[in-house]
Design a protein around this nucleic acid. Structure first.
Length: 314
DNA sequence: TGCAGTGTTGCTTC
DNA sequence: CGAAGCAACACTGC
């Protein structure tokens, strides 16, 4: 679930509390073996990478926190950047949990569960797999039920062109991402279905399954429409809907349909404002529309849309 | 009980 | 090259 609005919510929270703090320790139970594939061997899941990671991170000061696509970037004083991608179920929280010296996750959890901290009583927040000790006595923790999240470290000046970020398309909410640029990016995959193209991170960065469904509903475009067949007028509507829906997601503090939580362990509220996502069988909420929300598979992902007012353009 | 489905992405195969 | 399938993992819900 963490798409652009969720990651933005997390980054905004981290940017308020992390800068100027020192990282005093790092713990993880993810670094269990050595990997051969590039992305994994350069992540905290790799045993020898974690060793290096720890050496470069512990004792360093956090300077700033940024977002790029669905990635969280924590910039350190030694010009190294911690990069975190939350994938399906990851979320970062900051709080007073327990001492990092506890190397046993079970012990860690038992200690944490006894603390009077609402966030910790949330069952989704018990999957703590990475813990950073901070110089103010709190911890930055990664909760991740499915253990898909990626945590890595890259020299700050190389991060934009790294294997982690180098392939990404532009940020959809930046001012310089104009309608003209939007059309140009979409034209990279002319024969692709529009929902797939919107979610392609190398075309535009940050859009995932929930927000693509919602922006297509708002635009009246069928998600399986072939991109190059969409008339300019509809592309303009989609461009505006994209910005509107992403901003809504941010304004509601993200979407907690599943286990996304903000850095205080609290849920976002966008899931209460879905028009189509996971609304299968419900009447279409658009005024005057008599359609129904249906679900199909597009590009291997579930797609939700109105069978009446969302037009198939192909 | 069992299995399809779940937000993401990257690698492999065709 | 693109598209499709699958793997990474653990849980929910039918």
């Amino acid at each position: 679930m963490p798409e652009l609005p969720e990651v933005q919510t997390t980054v905004a929270g981290l940017a308020k509390v992390l800068p100027m703090l020192q990282i005093t320790d790092v713990w993880t139970d993810l670094a269990v073996k050595n990997h051969t594939t590039p992305h994994l061997s350069q992540s905290l899941k790799d045993k020898s990478f974690f060793k290096k990671f720890k050496q470069l991170v512990v004792g360093n000061k956090i300077i700033s926190v940024e977002r790029r696509a669905k990635n969280i970037l924590i910039n350190l004083a030694n010009k190294e950047t911690i990069l975190i991608h939350m994938k399906m179920t990851g979320h970062l929280m900051v709080g007073k949990y327990t001492k990092v010296e506890n190397k046993n996750i079970k012990t860690f959890w038992q200690v944490a569960a006894n603390e009077k901290n609402d966030a910790l009583r949330d069952p989704y927040n018990k999957y703590l797999h990475v813990v950073f000790g901070l110089s103010n006595g709190k911890q930055l923790v990664l909760s991740d039920a499915r253990k898909f999240a990626k945590v890595t470290l890259v020299p700050t000046e190389k991060i934009a062109t790294s294997i982690h970020l180098g392939h990404l398309g532009p940020e959809p909410l930046e001012k310089k991402f104009t309608l003209k640029e939007f059309k140009l990016r979409l034209s990279k995959r002319p024969r692709g279905k529009i929902k797939e193209v919107l979610m392609d991170q190398s075309v535009i960065a940050g859009i995932g399954n929930i927000y693509s469904d919602e922006m297509l509903w708002l635009s009246g475009i069928h998600p399986a429409s072939i991109t190059k067949e969409i008339p300019p007028k509809y592309l303009q509507i989609l461009y505006t809907a994209m910005q509107k829906v992403l901003h809504q997601g941010i304004d509601f503090g993200g979407d907690s349909t599943s286990d996304y939580r903000d850095i205080d362990g609290k849920r976002g509220k966008f899931q209460h404002h879905h028009n189509v996502y996971r609304m299968t069988g419900k009447p279409c909420p658009q005024k005057g529309c008599t359609g129904k929300i249906i679900r199909t598979i597009i590009g291997g992902r579930s797609a939700h849309f109105c069978n009446t007012h969302q037009k198939m353009l192909k």
